[in-house]
Design a protein around this nucleic acid. Structure first.
Lengths: 196, 196
DNA sequence: CAACTTTTAGTATCTGGTGCTAATATCAGT
DNA sequence: ACTGATATTAGCACCAGATACTAAAAGTTG
């Protein structure tokens, strides 16, 4: 079984190869590995790797969803409850693309994003921007955990909202923050303290 | 040309329809609009809409890149300079998926993400997590602007770094923040103040 | 009615595959 | 060297989702 070595070896490489660049046809792969197309097909079969089109479809669909959840809508996470001008509630599950690969710990700005966008959402106005924020990360959050963020409006003074957001995993507090959010009147973009 | 009305009308709808859900075959579209496949094909031809597979491919490729730039690497933005334990510099261009569509103003957490990940990167350790942050958004940042973030280590006390990050567009300050970042020893995940 | 646009039908062809059968290597063990 | 097992290659029929082209039918308008 000297062949067995070369075979499993090739299949390892193939797995790697496709993971790195999923947009390769069997023909291209065959040329790459110096074997026939049929061999590649058999390998894919054994390894359970779907055909190019399925791979593309999957990639496209996945990311079509991601675009919407990561940057498309105004809100990061899923809105559960919203009482304009008073409070808001959202959940977000920590997915693989939010974490450090070494540790599976979520990067802080993802938690921040959920909390920040919720803070902006509770403001009772067509447009609002974060002016300042003060946050404390209480403990790391891991892959797969569900973060519940609760925003409560603390005070309103003219166009300036002060909002507290607490993010928890189950009942444990993981992030606490205070956000100062400004309501923006149409076409306004002057002055100090803006953006979100 | 009463037909012309119905034709252009259908083509408008078709454009919309495909934009909303790019994963429809000509056959499904034909059924949806109650016309023949050939009509759909002619419409696509006239409108310059590529076939399903091309649309999928495009979506897959686009987002394959996006995944890497939005959440893949440890750093948000592009690293220009890095002196471990001392300072770091990164740039990021504000792209369409970072802004509020109504105003083309970047959402705050994207600026935060650039600054935060830079702060974590300058720490001279294999693993570090943001413990706390205090940020002030000085002015809104618009689609297409290039943000330069500069991080400077302010103080180090055991495993606790205090880092100032200033983000500018050209010479104008848009975001100023102070980050407290903790160095994590392997497998450590206890105690207070963590995550990033 | 004639001229025109729009719609439908049908065929040949392409790509990147699946699924199946069968013919060759290639090698190990006896 | 022969046998048996595994690995590789070849070939064919078929499929989806198209393109490209030709041609016929339907509807519209002066």
């Amino acid at each position: 079984m000297a062949r067995d070595f070369s075979k499993t070896h090739r299949q390892d490489k193939l797995n790697q190869c496709i993971e790195e660049n999923p947009f390769l046809t069997d023909e291209e792969l065959a040329r790459l590995f110096g074997v026939s197309i049929q061999t590649i097909r058999l390998d894919r079969l054994e390894l359970g790797i779907p055909e190019l089109r399925e791979r593309m479809k999957k990639a496209a669909e996945e990311n079509y969803g991601k675009i919407k959840s990561l940057s498309g809508p105004e809100l990061v996470g899923e809105l559960l409850d919203l009482e304009l001008g008073v409070s808001g509630l959202s959940v977000m599950e920590v997915t693989g693309d939010m974490v450090f690969q070494r540790t599976n710990i979520a990067r802080g700005h993802h938690l921040f994003a959920q909390a920040n966008s919720l803070a902006v959402a509770v403001v009772d106005a067509p447009m609002a921007l974060t002016g300042a924020a003060k946050v404390v990360f209480k403990r790391p959050v891991y892959l797969g955990e569900k973060i519940t963020a609760k925003a409560v409006v603390n005070s309103v003074k003219e166009n300036k909202y002060t909002i507290n957001v607490t993010s928890r995993v189950k009942l444990e507090e993981v992030l606490a923050g205070t956000y100062t959010v400004f309501v923006i009147k149409k076409e306004e973009e002057n002055g100090i303290a803006h953006s979100s």
